[in-house]
């Protein structure tokens, strides 16, 4: 294997990167799609509040809307980085 081939093999193919990015964004958008219009904004504002205290990724806040009988249940998940505040 030549020097250049080595680097080529190391680099992830761009189509693979595209696929992984799409899977994440599409999954996110599907969750909020059938919910009330304020869900995406709620998600963003929560993220902003959390960021006052901890540095987190864009996908640290996930919202799941479920239906139980005639009740709507909003499930919030916040993933914090391991034990480090600011």
């Amino acid at each position: 294997m030549s020097f250049f081939d080595y680097f080529r093999a190391q680099k992830k193919k761009s189509a693979q990167v595209a696929k992984e990015r799409l899977q994440v964004i599409v999954a996110r958008e599907r969750v909020t799609r059938n919910g009330p219009d304020y869900l995406p904004l709620l998600q963003e504002e929560l993220l902003a509040v959390i960021r006052k205290y901890v540095e987190v990724d864009n996908d640290a806040v996930t919202i799941q809307l479920d239906r139980e009988g005639d009740c709507e249940v909003l499930e919030l998940n916040i993933t914090l980085p391991d034990g480090r505040g600011r």
Binding site: K13, S14, A15, Q16, A18, K19, L22, Q23, V26
Partner: peptide, 17 residues
């Protein structure tokens, strides 16, 4: 381009959508 890994394949798009 799909074979070179530069373009999403038909299976990729089907899987996502």
């Amino acid at each position: 381009r799909v074979e070179r890994g530069e373009m999403l394949s038909v299976d990729d798009v089907r899987e996502i959508l």
